[in-house]
Amino acid sequence: MPSDDWYLTDDVEEFLARAGEFLRSRPAPHTVHLTVTENLRSSGARPYGDADPEFGVLAGEDGAGVRAAFLRTPPHPLLLTALTEEEAAVLAARLADEGRGVSGVTADRDTAAAFAGAWRRIAGAEVRLRQRMRLYRLGELTVPQPVPPGRARVAGEADRKRLARWFEEFSAAIGEPGAQDPEYWADERVRRGDVMFWRDSDGTPVAMAGMSPKVAGQVRVVAVYTPAHLRGRGYAGAVTVEVSRAALESGAEEVLLFTDLANPTSNGLYQRIGYRPVSDFAMYDFG
């Protein structure tokens, strides 16, 4: 039987002291764990809501090293590193026994399916596959042709309201309304200068893309968004190229992004830019 030697904590510094080296050892598959914990560690507020975050670390064989880890920022889904089917069942039983409500799970495809199945059996919850995702890594950056008129610029102080509104629209479009407070998200992006607009020939912003903080040499492209009435004109590709270039110029060793596998347009676009598949992930919601 797999070990139930999970150490649970609500302290991000304690979690990173135990699991940080493990997470940094494979920065691509652990990209979300790395960026979420960095946001929690560095921000003076709670960027993901008012509830206390939860963390877990599974010790390796004979208590040496780290085998796996999880984090959760309620009400968001549990975020797991890779587990075997048996390990997923043991963790599900542990969390259910302790009465910890779990709204869903996000992990690599096999781990997510294993945990969702175990949670359904143990907790009696309804389980729904919300999204299948693919993680990409940038190879050789390529500019898709033709490039639309205009140029990129970093979003600044005067762009706060637009950033907040677009992030709210983006979150709704991907099925995650309320993922973060839009005003807080906009404030942080302006402070860090990590969102770029593509502006048309008149100087009007027509699309945005951001990047996560650099952690363990990796940066992830996030929040690529074009308002519905402006889509199909190449703006998303153009701004993604520029934010990817900025990530490389910042010294990132790996530039990553996730796509929704149900959207063939975005998957095709990112591959034309030079992104190559790494692995598939899945998100399940629990009733």
Rank of each mutant, 00 (worst) to 15 (best):
S3K: 00
T9Y: 00
E14S: 09
R18C: 00
G20I: 06
R24G: 10
S25V: 11
P27G: 07
P27I: 07
H30I: 01
T31Q: 11
T35N: 12
L40R: 04
A45K: 08
A45I: 11
Y48H: 07
Y48A: 09
G49Y: 10
A51T: 06
P53W: 00
F55S: 00
V57E: 00
L58I: 11
A59N: 00
G65T: 00
P77C: 07
L80P: 03
A82E: 12
L83I: 01
T84M: 09
T84R: 02
T84P: 02
E86V: 05
E87T: 05
A93P: 03
L95R: 07
A96S: 13
V105S: 03
T106S: 12
A107Q: 05
D108Y: 06
D110E: 15
I122L: 15
E126Y: 05
G139M: 06
L141V: 00
T142D: 13
V143E: 15
P144Q: 14
P146C: 14
P148S: 13
P149I: 08
R151G: 11
R153T: 06
R153S: 03
V154M: 10
V154W: 10
G156V: 10
G156R: 03
A158I: 09
A158V: 14
D159C: 06
D159G: 11
R162G: 04
F167P: 04
F167Q: 10
E168D: 15
F170A: 05
S171Q: 14
S171V: 04
E176H: 09
A179Q: 08
E183D: 15
Y184N: 09
D187V: 06
R189P: 02
D194E: 13
V195N: 08
M196S: 12
R199E: 15
D200A: 11
A207W: 08
M211K: 03
S212K: 01
S212N: 10
K214I: 14
V215D: 07
Q218W: 09
V219P: 00
V221C: 04
V222R: 06
Y225M: 12
P227G: 12
A228W: 03
L230W: 02
R231C: 02
R233Q: 15
G234Q: 08
Y235F: 15
E242H: 10
E242K: 02
R245H: 00
E254H: 13
V255E: 05
L256D: 06
L261T: 14
A262Y: 03
P264H: 14
P264M: 14
S266Y: 06
S266E: 13
G268L: 09
L269I: 08
L269P: 06
R272W: 07
M283I: 14
F286C: 07
F286A: 09
G287D: 15
G287Y: 05
